[in-house]
C-alpha cells in the first residue's frame, strides 16, 4: 500500500540547535509506527512538521499526499494530532471539550453523539463527562486528549509521547485504544522515549540527533542484534577499570538497579566476563532488549541492525 505519511529528508534548525538532520520515513495505512529516541532527538519537531505546525527548512512532508502546512488543502480534516503538552481546555468539562473539537471539525450532532459516546465508553471516561479536564488524572487526561484527536476519524494520527506521565494501567488502555483504530486502517505515528514501548509498534524508527539510526520491525531488530548483554554487579572501583581497559569492546553501559547493564561487542564477551570475575564482580548474561539495541546504536556502535534493515 502507498504510504499516507511521508517524511523525506526533513531538516530543521532552531538557532544553534539542529533538531532534524535529514529524517526520512514513511507510514502505510493501518500501520502503527514508532519514533523512538531520547529527549531532544527531534521526535517532537518531526511530528509538528507532519502536523503542519512548522514548515521544515529542508526536505518535505506529505500527509495523505498533501502538504500539511497548507491550510486550504483540506489536509487538516484527515489529520489528528495530540501534542505532548496539555492541549485541552482545563476549565471546560470532558463533554464540553469533546463537543468543542467535534464542532471545529464540523461534525453533525448525530455524528458527535455517536462518536463521543463510543470514545467515552472505550476510554472509560463516561462517569467523568461533567468533570473539568484540569481535574482529571494524567492518564485520563491523555485518554481524553486522544478521544478529542480521534473524534473526526482522521486517516493519520500523530501522537507525541502519549504515555508520558501516565501510569502503567492507563498506558495499556491507551495502546489498546490505538490498536482498535489502527485495525480500522488508521495510520498512527507515535513518539516515545520508552524503549519498552517500541515493541508495541508494527515498525519503529530509532531517532538520534535528528536522524534515523535504524528502522524495522522491533522483534526483527532485536533478533538481529548480535552483541552480548551482561549484568555486572560489584564495587565501582573494581568494575570501572576493567570496562575502561576493554575499550571499544564495551559498546554501552547503563545503570540497572544497583548494578550495570553492559553491552559488549560479540566475541569480546567471554574475555570480559573472565576479567570482570577476576576483579570480583558478579556477571550474569542478559537477553538483549530494545534498549540495548538503542544504546548500542546511539553510542555510534556496531552495525547491529544489518539483519533487519
Amino acid at each position: 500500500m502507498s504510504p499516507v505519511v511521508a517524511a523525506a529528508g526533513l531538516g530543521h534548525v532552531y538557532g544553534a540547535v539542529r533538531a532534524l538532520d535529514g529524517l526520512s520515513f514513511a507510514v502505510a495505512p493501518g500501520e502503527l509506527y514508532g519514533l523512538i529516541g531520547a529527549d531532544g532527538a527531534g521526535k517532537t519537531t518531526a511530528l509538528r512538521i507532519l502536523a503542519g505546525l512548522i514548515v521544515p527548512q529542508r526536505g518535505s512532508a506529505r500527509v495523505v499526499g498533501l502538504d500539511p502546512a497548507d491550510t486550504r488543502s483540506g489536509v487538516r480534516e484527515s489529520l489528528g494530532y495530540m501534542p505532548q503538552r496539555y492541549s485541552l481546555y482545563g476549565d471546560l468539562s470532558v463533554a464540553e471539550n469533546l463537543r468543542f473539537f467535534a464542532r471545529l471539525f464540523c461534525l453533525s450532532r448525530r455524528e458527535y453523539a455517536e462518536r463521543s459516546a463510543r470514545l467515552l465508553a472505550i476510554t472509560r471516561l463516561e462517569k467523568f463527562a461533567g468533570r473539568p479536564a484540569e481535574q482529571l488524572s494524567g492518564g485520563m487526561y491523555k485518554k481524553l486528549a486522544l478521544a478529542c484527536a480521534l473524534l473526526h476519524r482522521p486517516r493519520v494520527l500523530l501522537l507525541d509521547e502519549p504515555t508520558n506521565g501516565v501510569d502503567p494501567v492507563s498506558r495499556l488502555d491507551l495502546w489498546e485504544l490505538l490498536y482498535e483504530f489502527v485495525a480500522e486502517g488508521m495510520a498512527v505515528v507515535v513518539s516515545t522515549p520508552y524503549m519498552d514501548e517500541a515493541e508495541r509498534c508494527h515498525r519503529v524508527g530509532l531517532v538520534h540527533h535528528g536522524r534515523l539510526l535504524l528502522e524495522g520491525e522491533p522483534r526483527a531488530l532485536v533478533a538481529g542484534f548480535t552483541d552480548a548483554v551482561l549484568q555486572v554487579a560489584g564495587a565501582a572501583e573494581c568494575v570501572e577499570p576493567v570496562l575502561e581497559r576493554a575499550g571499544a569492546d564495551v559498546v554501552a553501559v547503563a545503570p540497572l538497579g544497583g548494578a550495570l547493564r553492559v553491552v559488549v561487542r560479540r566475541g569480546a564477551s567471554a574475555g570480559l566476563r573472565r576479567a570482570l570475575a577476576a576483579a570480583g564482580a558478579q556477571v550474569e548474561p542478559l537477553r538483549p532488549n530494545f534498549e540495548d539495541l538503542f544504546l548500542a546504536q546511539a553510542a555510534g556502535g556496531a552495525p547491529a541492525g544489518e539483519a533487519a534493515a
Binding site: G52, L79, Y81, C148
Partner: peptide, 14 residues
C-alpha cells in the same frame, strides 16, 4: 500559554 492553540491550529479553523 496553555498549549491549546496547537490543537486549534491543526483543526480546520481559519
Amino acid at each position: 500559554e496553555v498549549g491549546t492553540i496547537e490543537q486549534l491550529l491543526v483543526s480546520p479553523i481559519t
